[in-house]
């Protein structure tokens, strides 16, 4: 059982880390600000979530897990709010978006 937990936790952590990295790469690679926001979302959601989940599995059932859960909860609220605020501010700051002209087929 412990073994399973350990494996699960490690794979969560590693997966989370990889998603974090992917998100970061997205932030680097995407062409404009608005598209980069999506990459950040990757970090904020799956990346962070998996890492925290992995840690929760490490911590077992204790106050530590509660704190991690609380952290997760916070992040799920703060992340999108921050991204939204950023997007809104950028829009109001007249930052032009690169938009694909074609209508979806």
């Amino acid at each position: 059982m412990d073994m399973v937990l350990a494996v699960l936790s490690w794979s969560c952590l590693l997966g989370g880390a990889i998603f974090l990295l992917i998100g970061a790469l997205g932030v680097l690679r995407f062409p404009d600000f608005y598209t980069r926001l999506h990459a950040v979302s990757v970090c904020d959601t799956l990346g962070a979530g998996l890492v925290l989940a992995g840690l929760m599995l490490q911590g077992g059932f204790s106050l530590v897990t509660v704190k991690l859960l609380l952290m997760f909860y916070f992040m799920m609220f703060t992340g999108p709010t921050a991204v939204h605020a950023l997007a809104q501010a950028a829009m109001q700051g007249k930052l032009q978006a690169v938009v694909d002209e074609h209508e979806p087929e």
Binding site: Y34, T35, L37, H38, A39, S41, V42, D44, T45, L46, M76, F77, G79, P80, T81, V83, H84, A87, Q88, M91, A97
Partner: peptide, 25 residues
């Protein structure tokens, strides 16, 4: 709005009453 933002690929850019402006990848 936050759910939209939370899902990667879509971001709520503006909320005006019931009208959302959304940016999608």
């Amino acid at each position: 709005a936050n759910s939209i933002t939370l899902v990667p690929g879509t971001v709520t850019v503006d909320v005006e009453e019931d009208l959302f402006t959304v940016h999608a990848l």
